[in-house]
């Protein structure tokens, strides 16, 4: 199970990084989001993979999942959303002002696929 979990995290991280290295803003944002999923899963797993752990404190519960990584990841998810939102809207603003969606601000001729 551990190997499976680790492999999944690794594949997600690799896919996210590949996208983050692309030249256009949208794939980069998608890549960063994917990367943040991988990171969240990774962080979460630092507390160990607990099956059937009790979610809340009760007298008859035998084991609990480590709450600390959960608290960290919970805020990370929300902040990650804020970051994704900020970067994608920055990308839109750049396209509006510079006229290009290239991450380096290059003015490349866009294929006018969205012509009406």
């Amino acid at each position: 199970m551990e190997a499976l979990f680790a492999t999944t995290t690794g594949i997600l991280a690799a896919s996210g990084l590949y996208l983050a290295l692309r030249g256009r803003t949208f794939p980069v944002v998608v890549g960063l989001t994917l990367l943040s999923y991988a990171v969240n899963l990774f962080l979460f797993s630092t507390g160990g993979l607990t099956t059937d752990g009790a979610a809340v404190i009760s007298d008859d519960a035998s084991k609990y999942a480590d709450p600390l990584p959960q608290a960290l990841v919970l805020t990370a998810i929300v902040i990650g959303f804020a970051m994704t939102a900020f970067s994608v809207i920055l990308a839109m603003r750049v396209r509006g002002d510079v006229g290009s969606d290239h991450v380096n601000g290059n003015r490349v001729d866009e294929p006018r696929e969205d012509k009406s």
Binding site: E2, A3, F5, A6, T7, T9, G10, I11, L12, A13, A14, S15, L17, Y18, L21, A38, F42, S45, T46, G47, G48, L49, D66, L68
Partner: peptide, 23 residues
Amino acid sequence: LAAGFGGVVASLNYALLTRPLNS
């Protein structure tokens, strides 16, 4: 690069998961 990165992340994760933690 991405494959290397993924490999390192997966190895790190696996190494972490199979070691006792002191929380």
